[in-house]
Amino acid sequence: MARMKFLCDADRCIECNACVTACKNEHEVPWGINRRRVVTLNDGKPGERSVSMACMHCTDAPCAAVCPVNCFYTTADGVVLHSKDICIGCGYCFYACPFGAPQYPRVGNFGSRGKMDKCTYCSGGPEPDLSTAEYEKYGSNRLAEGKLPLCAEMCSTKALLAGDGEMIAEIYKQRVLKRGYGSGAWGWKTAYRETVAI
């Protein structure tokens, strides 16, 4: 079975934010909620880099561990998903998440902030695949259609890679060898406790 991961090649990312837009459109993500975002480091300075970041679908996911109602589960593909029916919106997953992935529909206070929303790796939730209920709660399920996440699929510079961890690591490795440099697989050490060995 594949172990699905994201890898953002920051040396290719041009901060066009198309991944963000594609994600929002594909899943009808409301205003104010960003399942994916692009963070620019060293903005305006030499060596500036942009990294597109979403849920990394961690190994031993911190969100799943700290959830007081165990609403998270990991699929056979290594994708970390959650059930909005069980979620109580406590926000602990946001504190635990190294990548700031969990989002809440209301932000004023802790009391009734609604169900958490995060990147589903375009693979829906616990509802039956491609059902209306799944679409309403989690957005579309491209993985069930045999497609990869839209953000990576349509990345104009192919900076964002999605797919089996070993496969995308190999692609990235070849790129780095070819061009002679690479700023590394951002977040991999924290998410997967390993990094791409060049």
């Binding site: 963070v39 480091l41 970041m53 911190p62 504190y95 190294p98 990548f99 700031g100 951002w186 924290t190």
Partner: peptide
Amino acid sequence: NLIQPQGR
């Protein structure tokens, strides 16, 4: 915040 390993 891009990465906060303190979450771990």
